[in-house]
Design a protein around this nucleic acid. Structure first.
Length: 593
DNA sequence: TTTGCCTGCCC
DNA sequence: ATTCTGC
DNA sequence: GCAGAATGGGCAGGCAAA
């Protein structure tokens, strides 16, 4: 299939908000693509080149695409950036620039002199960009992209730019593609295709298999060590009561650890670790890999757990931030010593030829406990079964004492197995921060704004927030915030702030971050977050906790309250932030008392 | 050689 | 990660 | 309720500019 034909479908997908319509449009595409091409089509529709675990990255982000667009169109970098600010979408920028460009390219495509690309060619070209590395590679990548763009119509360039940026903006993700494949190959029955994707994590492969071998081909895709599954996901609950309502009065509870989720696959004496997004992370955690091989006595298995950083002296769990030092390619040996990791296992999906994903929670849990020989660095998650809110509360408190983020509740329903790829109420997470009475809100001053993208194009998409520092009479940044705003907020708030808009950073604003627009400190937003972290980017409480570092809010969001009753000097002060940070550190002891 | 921008991926 | 919105 | 989109802090690594 020609790329130009695919673009007709992409246009239709972009225009049609209805999922039913999108499914129809995609079905037509899948009826027309042949064999292997079906796989490439799926990857391109998703704005990627391969399944995540292949680790293939294009390595061109917004800034580099802007450079390429500037070269391809002859427009200055500045004018391309301006256009991007206005349109909020590099695809539209590409289209606009190429449309307004006169001369060679325009004549080329009008005269039909360009090389028509089919889907496979395009995929191959993008792959070439991805594989270009080393000295001079940035220029080469940009050159390859420029050539691709120059060989395209403006509308094709729109989608090429979006593919490279990894965001197609056509309202299509895996579930919609699965629906479309189902309507072509299984009379609309999604279950088989969905399952094939959820146990293989490679929708391109599923599509290719369907296109070459039909439904029969899918039967070879089953739970197999070495083939990563889509992880089962949890919904959230606002209270412990809600958990018991949803789970029928009784539930299994486990500590929820603040680390990195991991799926371990072992067979033929080989172990592979996958992250939550199905990246291969084996080389990050050689200690975890070997400890698992020692700690689990089976010929083959798939188990799931959370990797947490532990204090090398005391063995106590450390914050997520510490574990992040382990996400590295170089100096792994030293990092293993300096930031030891423990794996806390919480599920088993396969053991020695038996697929456990269809088995209920208690059976999986029993099996897990049966195969794991616990040690200092391999443990099974702390778990219990509870049938009262009071018991759950005690368990939750002990989880917080132990340094966890909260608890997970898991259904005991014997008819419910491990639901790969599904987010539902079979698993429910309940975090400390969801209990509003335990989470302090912050009153922070708006000091800057950032242009929005996509559906927030032409609006302010986020704000730069600061705390007040009375000793220097400055406003020191703590976070940006961009979530929690309704469409109405996004429309109204800029009007309110317009009166305070200034052309440059206000002299009292102390920041390392360059905002798109600046405000005089005046308006206060109420912000909530999960916790405070030590920050290299923010300036609040600078060098108070760590040299040359400030404090920042983890997972910040706007509560919907604008504190018109407060003046900016009444905002949360840096001393209050410090106090919060210190009490957060002491919380473990405080809660234990 | 060092610095800093940019990107991708954890949460 | 969290949150909002259209279907 | 699902699916999709838009956005957060912060880490390492690749590369180019200083």
């Amino acid at each position: 299939m020609q790329f130009s034909e695919l673009c007709v479908a992409l246009d239709a997908l972009e225009t049609n908000p209805s999922r039913i319509e999108k499914t129809k449009i995609l079905s037509d595409v899948f009826r027309r693509v042949q064999g292997e091409e079906a796989g490439f089509t799926v990857y391109l529709l998703l704005g990627k080149l391969a399944p995540d675990y292949e680790g293939i990255e294009i390595g061109l982000g917004d800034k580099m695409i802007i450079k390429a667009l500037s070269t391809a169109s002859g427009a200055t970098r500045d004018s391309v950036e301006k256009l991007y600010e206005k349109l909020g979408d590099l695809g539209l920028v590409a289209k606009t620039l190429l449309e307004s460009k006169r001369g060679a390219t325009l004549l080329d495509y009008v005269g039909g002199q360009r090389n028509p690309l089919n889907i496979q060619d395009l995929h191959a070209e993008l792959l070439r960009i991805a594989r270009t590395s080393g000295e001079g590679s940035q220029e080469e990548k940009i050159g390859l992209l420029t050539r691709l763009l120059s060989n395209s119509t403006p509308n094709e360039a729109k989608y090429i730019a979006r593919m490279v940026s990894g965001d197609m903006r056509i309202g299509v993700a895996e579930p919609t593609i699965i629906d479309a494949l189902a309507s072509v190959y299984t009379q609309g029955d999604t279950s088989l295709i969905e399952r094939a994707f959820n146990v293989s994590s490679d929708l391109g492969y599923v599509a290719k298999t369907l296109a070459t071998g039909g439904v029969e081909g899918l039967r070879t895709i089953k739970v197999t060590p070495g083939r990563p599954l889509q992880p089962m996901l949890a919904e959230r609950a606002a209270s412990l009561e809600e958990i018991f309502e949803r789970m029928g009065g009784r539930a299994a509870l486990e500590y929820k650890y603040d680390g990195e989720r991991m799926q371990a696959h072992y067979y033929d004496s080989q172990i592979t670790l996958f992250s939550r997004r199905i990246e291969n992370i084996t080389h990050h955690y050689p200690d975890v890999a070997s400890n698992l091989q020692e700690g689990i006595n089976s010929k083959s298995y798939i188990v799931e757990g959370e990797i947490v950083a532990v204090d090398p002296e005391t063995g106590e769990m450390l914050p997520f931030q510490e574990l992040m030092h382990r996400r590295r390619k170089h100096g792994v040996k030293e990092a293993v010593k300096r930031y030891p990791a423990r794996v806390v296992l919480f599920d088993v999906l396969y053991v020695d030829g038996v697929d456990y994903t269809s088995k209920p929670y208690l059976e999986r849990r029993r099996k897990l406990e049966g195969i794991v020989k616990p040690s200092e660095f391999v443990v099974v998650s702390t778990a219990t079964v509870a049938d009262s809110v009071q018991r759950a509360q005690e368990f939750f408190d002990s989880a917080i004492d132990a340094g966890c983020e909260g608890i997970m509740a898991k259904t005991l329903d014997p008819s419910v197995g491990y639901q790969a790829g599904k987010r539902g109420y079979a698993w429910i997470k309940f975090k400390r921060e969801y209990k509003s009475e335990l989470t302090d809100t912050l009153d922070l001053v708006v000091v800057g704004g950032f242009y929005g993208k996509g559906r927030r194009a032409g609006k302010i998409g986020g704000y730069l927030m600061a705390a007040y520092n009375p000793s220097t009479d400055t406003y020191d940044t703590v976070c940006k915030v961009a979530t929690g705003f309704s469409d109405q907020d996004l429309a109204e708030i800029p009007k309110l702030l317009e009166a305070y808009r200034i052309p440059q950073r206000h002299p009292q604003v102390n920041t390392k971050i360059e905002a798109d627009i600046w405000y005089r400190p005046a308006v206060i937003f109420e912000i909530v977050g999960a916790e405070l972290t030590v920050s290299p980017m923010h300036t609040a409480a600078y060098s108070k906790v760590r040299e040359e570092k400030g404090l920042a809010v983890r997972f910040p969001r706007f509560t919907g309250n604008i504190r018109t009753d407060k003046s900016p000097t009444e905002a949360t002060s840096v001393d209050e932030l410090l106090e919060m940070y210190n009490s957060q550190l002491k919380r473990v002891e405080a809660d234990g008392a």
